[in-house]
């Protein structure tokens, strides 16, 4: 039963959610302690007033009560306040989230759409020059520092093209500031470089994976059955084999999500992309522990949710789970 499987998957994420939040909460306690964000901003408060506020906020209560209260807040989308300016972390997150989602989802789709045909080509022409070239490319792609690739692409496609008076790609931001910016084309043009960089590493991993998965599927008995029915090799590959080869890729993408979000942070910084990664980076430079931890909690939960999504997608693609 699909429903049963999904319930089991959801239940399995609960310990992970508790564990992740427990870790970030403990780190918060260690770093920020019972510091009340924004309390320094009011020089008129006396010590007993601070005590009263702490009592009011529940900071005098046992740690596990504080954790549960805090977790309930997280459940309601409250990720605490900045210890620098007292602003709500959640409002920052939700300001910056669309940009991050835009970049990450584009990179995932780009990575999948390019790596599947590359992997299939490699598998079908195993041992050929094309296959060797693709292997070399993916080995190389896996070793390039993403931030450096970003710098190089900016150097070539923004700086150099501009210097030569050619049309060039923007090196940062989501849209061109000021009037005339912000339409769809403008957004797409801004996405090209960061999305390319972010998907580059995964292109290497996923195309390799598709290749080996495809090779395995092509040796399966049911592929021989399909051939024996008398169909074109295209139909054998794209109708009968590909679906089986791609299903495990969904799991892999799900597993790579934490790394993707990590890579996203670096890319956001290089391309001044106003997402949550860049937000965390800016706040980290100001040693704003509460904001950094709030964002970390949020990002971890986002990854857990993404994993769950991958599991659901996997179940939908694989009839052995959907109709078990």
């Amino acid at each position: 039963m699909l429903a049963k499987y999904l319930v089991r998957r959801v239940l399995a994420t609960i310990p992970v959610v508790i564990g992740v939040t427990l870790i970030t909460f403990m780190l918060m306690h260690v770093t920020a302690g019972s510091y009340i964000p924004g309390i320094d901003l009011n020089p008129n408060l006396k010590a007993e007033d601070v005590e009263a506020i702490k009592r009011y906020l529940g900071l005098d209560r046992p740690l596990y009560i504080q954790y549960i209260t805090w977790l309930a807040g997280v459940g309601h989308g409250d990720f605490g306040r900045s210890m620098i300016d007292g602003s709500l972390v959640s409002s920052h997150i939700f300001d910056r989230l669309p940009a991050t989602l835009e970049l990450t989802i584009t990179a995932i789709l780009l990575g999948i759409l390019i790596s599947i045909p590359l992997g299939v080509t490699g598998a079908l022409r195993r041992g050929s020059k094309i296959d060797h070239a693709l292997t070399a490319m993916s080995v190389g792609g896996f070793a390039i520092p993403a931030f450096w690739l970003g710098l190089l692409l900016i150097l070539v496609f923004s700086v150099q093209l501009q210097a030569w008076g050619l049309p060039f790609l923007p090196s940062g931001g989501v849209t061109t500031p000021g009037l005339g910016g912000g339409d769809l084309l403008d957004r797409v043009v801004h996405l090209i470089l960061p999305a390319t960089v972010l998907s580059f590493v995964y292109l290497s991993i996923w195309s390799r994976f598709t290749r080996s998965s495809m090779l395995e599927v092509l040796s399966q008995d049911y592929v021989r059955t399909a051939r024996a029915k008398g169909m074109t090799e295209r139909r054998v590959v794209y109708m009968h084999a590909l679906r089986n080869a791609v299903i495990p890729l969904v799991t892999l993408v799900g597993l790579e999500l934490p790394a993707l979000v990590s890579g996203g942070l670096v890319v956001e910084v290089v391309f001044s992309w106003p997402g949550i990664g860049k937000l965390l980076y800016e706040r980290a430079l100001q040693t704003d522990y509460t904001t950094v931890l709030g964002i970390t909690t949020f990002a971890a939960l986002l990854v857990v949710a993404g994993n769950l999504l991958a599991d659901i997608l996997y179940a939908l693609l694989d009839p052995r789970i959907r109709y078990a």
């Binding site: 310990p15 992970v16 564990g19 992740v20 870790i23 780190l27 770093t31 934490p258 790394a259 979000v261 990590s262 890579g263 942070l265 670096v266 965390l280 980076y281 980290a284 040693t287 522990y289 950094v292 931890l293 964002i295 970390t296 990002a299 971890a300 990854v303 857990v304 994993n307």
Partner: peptide, 18 residues
């Protein structure tokens, strides 16, 4: 599972500023 669920660079940055 829990350690690996958190995007690693977030933890690195956190520990780094600590």
């Amino acid at each position: 599972d829990i350690i690996l669920a958190v995007p690693a660079i977030f933890l690195f940055i956190l520990m780094s500023i600590l």
